[in-house]
């Protein structure tokens, strides 16, 4: 006896992408990749601090004038900021929805569930995300808005950076946050491959190792900046 099962009628209001858990994971992966690309570009830009005050400040100014004469001053930068802010909000929204679904999925827990395959990075994704968010808020208050900076000079980003990182607790917190970011990127990047279904033979063997290497390079790159300020290489 063949029994036909009729699928539940799809709700016409919300797209599939936001309705199913896999859809939310896809959304999280895509926004995660956008944020990852920002983290890479931000690092490449920030490493210019090792070239000295003039090139670093010129880079910061360049972010505002890039695209001229097609774009007005700061226009492209604001477009990027809107895309990034949207990505952050969608990323967090999807993460909260997925986390809540998972917490609901096991109302009675085990006495103990022995981890076998999972990693520290995988198990700290949720709290890692919260820490990174808190860090980004502080980071913006410190170096973009200047509210948390000891001597903020608009436009002199080199001076602002050195003034902030000369305080060792701030530098230490920054370095710790970058380790958390590295762990988040390691599991996030390999998860994005998995969620977006990229596991064809050319990439299959490299997904985990590649994600680990990229995460390590990003953390090392970012940590080098406050470390250089602390040891007096950048002053």
């Amino acid at each position: 006896m063949t029994q036909l099962v009729v699928a539940p009628a799809p709700s016409p209001v919300t797209p599939r992408l936001t309705r199913s858990l896999i859809g939310k994971k896809l959304l999280m992966a895509v926004t995660g990749v956008i944020l990852f690309l920002f983290v890479v570009l931000h690092l490449l830009g920030n490493l210019k601090v090792f070239e000295g005050p003039a090139p670093f400040n010129a880079y910061a100014e360049g972010l505002r004038t890039v695209g001229a004469p097609f774009f007005a001053r700061g226009q492209l930068l604001w477009i990027a900021r809107i895309v990034l802010l949207g990505s952050v909000l969608l990323h967090i929204w999807a993460a909260v929805a997925v986390t809540q679904a998972s917490w609901r999925a096991r109302p009675v827990g085990y006495r103990r569930l022995e981890p076998v395959e999972t990693t520290f990075a995988a198990r700290t994704m949720r709290w890692g995300g919260v820490i990174i968010f808190a860090y980004v808020v502080y980071h913006l208050l410190d170096l973009t808005f200047g509210r948390a900076n000891p001597s903020f000079v608009p436009g002199d980003v080199y001076h602002n950076l050195v003034a902030s990182f000369a305080r060792w607790p701030v530098a230490a917190a920054y370095m710790a946050a970058m380790v958390v970011l590295g762990l988040h990127i390691y599991h996030g990047l390999w998860s994005a491959f998995q969620t977006l279904g990229v596991n064809r033979p050319p990439t299959a063997g490299w997904r985990r190792g590649g994600a680990a290497l990229i995460a390590l390079l990003i953390t090392a790159g970012y940590v080098s900046i406050p470390a250089a300020v602390l040891v007096g290489m950048v002053r």
Partner: peptide
């Protein structure tokens, strides 16, 4: 719940089914 790519399922599976199939489903 939702998959967060821990890989615990693959480790527990008595038939050792790979999480590569999860990527395929996605």
């Amino acid at each position: 719940g939702a998959c967060t790519n821990h890989g615990e399922c693959m480790a527990a599976c008595p038939k050792e089914i790979s999480i590569d199939f999860i990527a395929r489903l996605n």
